[in-house]
Simulated assay, not measured.
Amino acid sequence: MADTSISQVLSESHTVIYGGSEESKPQANEVSLGMIHETLVRIESRLSNIETNSVSLEKRLHIIENKMNNIDRLSENLASLETKMSKVEREMHQVKKTAEEAENSAKTISEMFDSATTKTERDLKKCLKEESSKLDEKFKISIQAIEKRNEEIQSSVTDLKSRSMRDNLIFSGIPENRNEDCEVVLQDFLDRKLNIQDVSFERVHRMGKYREYSEKPRNIVAKFSFYKDREKVRTRAPRKLKGSQIWVNEQFPPEIEDRRKNLYPVMRQAKADNRRVKLVRDILYIDGQIYAPEDTSKPHTVNENPTHVRSSAQNPGHAQNKKTTEDRQLLKRARIGSTPERT
């Protein structure tokens, strides 16, 4: 049926049955065969349509088959892709795991570093503190040694100054002329007021610059050639010059003079109380006892009954501690207290 059409088959069947002539066909059968023929034609037409549809369906199936093949290839590609994706996922998981391990390692290292840094800082601070304490202690010891040495040097310098001024006296209140000879003026003063003659001097001069319109005369500083002459003038002056406006005082370095000025109020108060008073350089004796204020560098408040008097006989150790080297050297010389300056 694929090579021969249905109409040809029917035609050949009709010829075999009724012969080659159309007239020899029976009339009754003619109607039936015509109907059959028409039916068969319709069937043929339908079969043709079916065949056509089959061809179309074949084409469609072929297309579907091609598409299915494509789908199969896609499936294979998808399977391969899935395999690759699985491999990538495994690798990513491994990378993530490695990254987490690296992060944990970095965190551990950071903690170890922070701990080591903290410990190092703590140890460094402790070491620096210890070294600083040692340096401070050494510095304090050095400063104390320097201060002690400085005090010793200052004491030695003050003692040397005092020794260089040992033969000096200061005369205050002697009238002054512009072109005077100080030594002649002083010789005349000693002769008239103290009845002392033939005194030899090494130097005699007035202190400071001359001021023409100054009412107060400048002090005269005299360096005696002989200590005995100096002591004769110093011991006679308080009796001979009492009530006058002229004073004779020993000359001391500024350090000793400042300490003496702080002792003058105490000495005057003790004298007013009819107590025995003697001032030897910068040491005050009241009734034979050394007056030892807590701080002679500050002005002392005068009390009616001084309480800062200590007896060296009652407490020799304490008195010895209060005395400096220059004080002990001074006490070796028997010297009479000087007249304090008028304040």
Rank of each mutant, 00 (worst) to 15 (best):
N305W: 13
R268G: 00
Q314G: 01
M267S: 12
V277N: 06
L279N: 09
S312E: 14
P293F: 02
A313W: 15
A270M: 10
E326R: 08
A292R: 08
V266C: 00
T301C: 05
P254M: 00
R281M: 03
V302P: 12
L284Y: 10
P253A: 00
S311L: 09
N262P: 06
R260Q: 15
V248Q: 03
A272W: 03
L284R: 09
D282Q: 12
H308M: 10
A270D: 10
D258Q: 10
P316E: 00
T325M: 08
S312I: 04
V248E: 05
M267Y: 11
R310Y: 14
N262E: 04
V277S: 05
W247D: 04
P253C: 03
A313L: 14
Q314R: 15
G288L: 05
H318W: 15
E304L: 11
P306L: 01
K322F: 15
M267V: 00
S312V: 08
Q269L: 07
R281E: 11
V248Y: 06
L263W: 06
R310W: 10
N321P: 05
Y285D: 07
P265I: 05
K261I: 01
V277W: 09
H300L: 13
N274V: 01
V248C: 06
H318M: 12
E250P: 03
S312C: 15
L330M: 13
H300I: 05
D282F: 06
N274K: 10
V266G: 01
T324V: 04
N274Q: 11
W247S: 05
P306M: 01
P299R: 03
A270E: 09
F252R: 02
L263C: 04
L263R: 03
P254Y: 02
N303F: 09
L330Y: 11
N303R: 12
K298A: 02
H308E: 14
K322Y: 15
R310V: 09
I290G: 01
P254V: 02
G317W: 13
W247N: 07
R268V: 09
L331Y: 14
N249E: 10
R276M: 06
I246N: 01
V266F: 05
L330N: 12
V248G: 02
A292K: 10
R281D: 06
